[in-house]
Design a protein around this nucleic acid. Structure first.
Lengths: 219, 219
DNA sequence: ACGAGTCGGTTGTATTTACAACAGAAAGGA
DNA sequence: TCCTTTCTGTTGTAAATACAACCGACTCGT
């Protein structure tokens, strides 16, 4: 478990906490480290959860199998990311998605009650971890609101424009580099890739923007 | 300010905290109470925010004016609700929406740094408030993920089915009562009302469900 | 240099949607 | 009761979308 302290140190959850203090907290929080082989389920839709999770090693997919068995991948979880935090409230409903290891992976489990109950003075940095957690969730929340904003637009063009103009605002420039290729962008905005590609070209022909690969410039 | 203690007592933020302790905490947290006339802005898109807000009195709209000045109402805030929590992280971006008073309103402002830094022993319940806040945001987070799930569907029918079946799961019955009328449901799912109405009737004719007003039964 | 695989753009068609306009039913107030 | 307003369903049309199929450019490993 100690071997992952350097990894934890770089996570949002333990940001600003020293190695020794992280080690101490792992015991204090009764952290558990579970490992998964490629293809195994880490979390299953419909379960209840009372732990905050942090990926220590490997890579995970967030996916959903709908009504008719169609599988869709909603997102990825990389090393150091926090997840599960949306389901740990006492009155919270069950998990809405599956989480699956796409590589051999290791996951830290922290009982949420221990995390948010500041304990004895032994953990000097416990308060900081609580704050880190709070801010991490807050930011995630904003990201979700943001995405909902894009997704609530009716047409592909509107979705693209709202996404691109927001990204331009964020990167503070009319020239922006997207973190997606076309397929990923289409997935993110929940539209058809070819229709989106088509729309992008129309917008370029109308002089609204230009692009090359994942670099865009807005006018 | 004290006059709103009974209101605060019933909020998620102060759930489980006694009247006297709430009064104490109002000072300790340096809470500010601001009032707004009908039509005034409480928050403006693009601003930064470092406070958690709780509506003490009145009613607010969350709205967005898009590119071309089209106004759309994204939601309502009722008495006792917490808002603003998605924007208070130090690295957080600016507000994504406007918040406007649709009635004369009163709003509590709590500086987030004070809220999540547990103070001296004077505030016995400070830890509980931090936990309350955490769980409130966690639940909000789940709600957003849920809505994203509906919205990521491509067709109106799929959106309806995912929403209705989830609601049936939540209400633990095939007969469910929706908290929306048709227009509100259409707004929630970001689809056209008449198209949705049409689709609902088609689904009824196909024997997938039946409904009367906002009572639905799934088959 | 070769072939496999990935990526982005294009096209055509069937499906789905938005939008506008209208009508009947229900609710609520004067 | 009558009038107004709100809610819901219906229809037609123009617009937008999904989907499938295909093509060329590019990358990468051998």
């Amino acid at each position: 478990m100690k071997e992952f302290v350097p990894v934890l140190k770089r996570t949002k959850l333990f940001s600003g906490v020293g190695d020794d203090d992280i080690s101490t907290m792992l015991s204090c929080l009764e952290a558990r480290l579970l490992t998964y082989k490629k293809g195994e389920y880490v979390l299953r839709q419909g379960e209840h959860l009372s732990d905050i999770l942090v990926l220590a090693e490997g890579r995970l997919h967030i996916q959903r199998d709908d009504y008719w068995g169609n599988r869709s991948i909603l997102g990825h979880i990389g090393v150091g990311e926090i997840f599960g935090e949306a389901y740990v409230a006492p009155e919270s409903g069950t998990l809405l998605n599956d989480v699956i290891a796409v590589e051999d992976s290791a996951v830290f489990f922290f009982d949420v009650k221990r995390v948010i109950s500041t304990c004895s003075s032994a953990c000097r940095f416990h308060t900081m971890v609580v704050q880190n957690l709070f801010f991490a969730i807050s930011e995630k929340n904003r990201g979700l609101v943001q995405k909902l904003d894009y997704m609530s637009r009716r047409t592909t063009r509107e979705k693209l424009l709202s996404y691109l103009s927001e990204e331009a605002k964020k990167q503070n420039s009319a020239s922006i580099t997207l973190p997606f290729n076309r397929q990923q962008l289409a997935d993110y905005l929940s539209v058809d890739r070819s229709a989106m590609s088509n729309e992008l070209c129309k917008m370029r022909d109308e002089g609204l923007l230009e692009f090359e690969k994942n670099r865009f410039r807005l006018f």
